[in-house]
Computed example of a mutant assay.
Amino acid sequence: MRLLILGGTEFVGYAVTEAALARGWEVTVFHRGAHPAPAGVTALRGDRTAADGLAALAAGEWDAVVDTWSGAPSAVRDTARALAGRAGRYAYVSSGSVYAYPSPDGHDESHPVVEGSPDAGAVAYERDKRGGELAAIGAFGEDGALLVRAGLILGPRENIGRLPWWLNRIARGGPVLAPGPSDLELQFIDARDLAEWTLDAVAHGLSGPYNLIGPPGHTTMGGFLEACVRATGSDAELRWTDPERILAAGVQPWTDLPLWVPRGELYETLHRGAVDKALASGLRCRPAGETVADTWSWLTSLGGRAPQRPDRPALGLDPRVEEELLGTPVRA
């Protein structure tokens, strides 16, 4: 397979690149040059937001394209149009955020989506992703566009800061605020599992939307944090705390305590999506403990400092708030 990856040098794009190279595919990476391209690819430079930014893509043919863009939908539109007729399929890594809120427990690909336009500039994440979907469909048609509606993505090279924050916090050891209940089920997908499924999907000619996330109950909050303790080898003591007490202290779910949200509408939207369609088409998800352990290995290779996307805020709980909730000092 001849694969063109739009991006390919960070997190999800890098995982797709590595997986494709491991299959012996011929991989071209189109990127801005902010990060080194993986060894073994043909690297093309260009900025999709610039007037002549697609010049490097003026020639060439590919069996499939994978696009991880999360900005203005118009950039997806222009790129997809430029490649139409010279690429077999267009896989756009979208998001479960395109579903209208709230998304009920068990929501599948038929759930209503937000409005979006392929011609829009950057507006809001969910509308940008929906506009990107429409741009891919507009250029490649319903049968040629694969919409990978990813949920929470974790794994090595994460540049958002969710799993890295938890690992670094637990590595410090001592009493750790653990947001309850411990049996709260979580859904996420390892970027490497997303990459493998996406490559299988384009190779088999799949199209249309697919929820791409681990099955409901892939792990629990307790299983996740205990895996962090095992991976880091720390003496962390998980202090399970009721959601009501955490919220009363002004702690923000999802951002102050990454991954965690109490049961309710937001929880069902983020952690209760249906993945039957993806599982039936071959999605395989590695154990949560493997994702945690591999991310820790990668993080320690960087001295504990994970890369941070400049367009995303830093995450994590203020140690002073954690101390107040625990009633005891925490390790800096």
Rank of each mutant, 00 (worst) to 15 (best):
D47E: 15
G138V: 10
E126R: 14
A293W: 01
E290Y: 00
R48G: 03
Y90F: 15
R130T: 08
S281G: 00
L146K: 05
P310R: 11
L194A: 13
G8D: 04
L54N: 07
A314T: 15
D143N: 10
D52M: 02
T28Q: 05
R169I: 11
L134T: 07
P243N: 01
G88A: 02
G250V: 05
R2M: 07
G116H: 10
A314M: 03
G121F: 02
A100N: 01
G282A: 08
L3R: 03
A19R: 12
E244I: 00
T328P: 03
G327R: 13
G121K: 02
L163I: 11
A171L: 03
H31Q: 14
L134A: 02
R230V: 14
A274M: 04
S207V: 01
L325Y: 01
S234W: 07
T28D: 12
R2Y: 10
V123P: 00
A75C: 12
L212A: 14
L21Y: 11
E142V: 14
E18F: 00
L199F: 12
G282S: 08
Q308H: 15
Q252W: 00
A201I: 13
A87F: 01
A274L: 01
A39S: 15
A37S: 14
G304D: 05
V292H: 02
L325S: 08
A64K: 03
R23D: 09
G33K: 13
A145L: 05
A332F: 00
I137C: 04
G33L: 09
R169K: 15
D63Q: 11
D78I: 02
S103E: 08
D242H: 12
I137T: 14
Y210E: 01
E324K: 14
A332N: 12
G33R: 13
P313H: 09
R309H: 13
F11P: 13
G304C: 10
E109I: 13
D143H: 12
L83H: 04
G250R: 05
L134F: 08
E265Q: 14
P73H: 07
T9K: 03
D276Q: 14
H31K: 05
Y267T: 13
G60E: 07
T49W: 00
E61C: 08
D119A: 12
P164F: 08
P243V: 01
F188G: 00
F140L: 02
G174T: 11
G250S: 06
E26Q: 15
F11L: 13
L186F: 14
A171H: 15
A19C: 10
L54V: 10
A288Y: 04
A56S: 11
A150H: 03
A278V: 15
G24A: 09
V16N: 08
L147P: 06
R192P: 11
